[in-house]
Computed example of a mutant assay.
Amino acid sequence: MVPEVTSSSAPPGDGRAARWAGQRERRRREFVDAALRAIAEHGPDVSTGRIADVAGVARPQLYKHFDDATDLKLAIADRATELITTALLPIWEPQGSAMQMIAVAVDAHTGWLAENGNLYRYLTRHSQLEGHLGRDAVADVKTVIARQLTQVFEFYLTAFQLDTRIADVVSFGVVGLVDSCAAQWLEEPRGITRTQLTDLLTRWIWRIVDDALRAGGIELDPHLPLPPPPRRQPPSPPG
């Protein structure tokens, strides 16, 4: 009689471990997506129990796929970062005139924020996770965006034969301006529509860029089409 092969006697290379790992990762992603739906529906202070309800499982079942609440929050932050990076595609592929590049990028940011307000609030409230000091999803995303903008500014400053050292400062300043203004608008819009906010931020950013160019003796028509910088893949935020 041929002995029955059990999981304990199966050779290590039979692929079972890989299949289990893939299944676990798939289930983790399903639970994270359920968490995103729960946050959108019930707000940034949603409980783990509510997330389990939306996922259609008992809370203990949820924790079979996550080490603890912090592990779940980290997974949510990672997934949110993916979504934000995808939504901000215009920043990775700028094209058109300077004003068009700015307007499209700002519109993408304010659009994502308007549609995902509760998720943004969740990320800001859970930015510093226990045991992961320094891990801040919102700050990570802002840093990635600022680094990308630095490369874009360096490309055009080089083309205009200007000092590229200001690119980093300008980039982080612009990102901080957009994020702080949009976050405040999210909580207290005061009758300002998203379109109006986008227009305001677009004009302000152009004035910052225009000032930097004029300081170097360059007067640029903001509506003049510009050659696009080299295309780059969105980088992964620091983990």
Rank of each mutant, 00 (worst) to 15 (best):
R16E: 11
T143P: 00
A10R: 15
H126A: 02
D107M: 02
D68C: 01
T202F: 08
P230F: 02
E93K: 13
V152H: 10
A17M: 09
D107W: 04
V2M: 12
F31D: 00
P222Y: 02
H132A: 12
G173E: 01
V152D: 14
G15A: 06
G134E: 03
T143M: 03
L186S: 15
R147S: 09
Q61P: 02
R207D: 10
A21P: 05
L149S: 10
Q196K: 10
D210Q: 15
Q184F: 14
S180Y: 07
A146M: 02
L88F: 09
M101R: 13
R231M: 10
T81D: 07
L177A: 07
R194Q: 15
T110A: 15
L62A: 04
E154G: 12
Q128M: 00
S171F: 10
R231S: 14
A69V: 15
A17P: 03
E188V: 03
A10V: 10
P238G: 14
L129I: 04
N118G: 03
A137E: 03
V32L: 04
D107Q: 11
T86C: 05
L224Q: 15
G111S: 14
R232P: 06
A212S: 13
A55H: 11
A212F: 04
R50I: 01
W20G: 06
S7P: 02
A10H: 01
T110I: 10
D107F: 01
E82M: 04
P44G: 12
P235T: 10
S236E: 13
Y122M: 05
L119W: 01
A137V: 06
P228V: 01
H223D: 14
Q151Y: 11
A98G: 13
T124F: 03
A80H: 06
S171C: 03
I145H: 05
A58R: 13
L201Q: 07
P235M: 08
F155A: 02
M99S: 09
T86A: 15
G176T: 04
L119E: 02
R194F: 12
R165E: 14
M101S: 08
P228R: 03
P94F: 11
H109Y: 14
S47L: 04
L220H: 13
R121S: 10
A35L: 03
C181A: 15
V106I: 13
A137D: 03
V104S: 07
Q95C: 06
C181I: 15
R26I: 00
Q95P: 01
P11F: 09
Y122A: 03
S171M: 00
A55E: 11
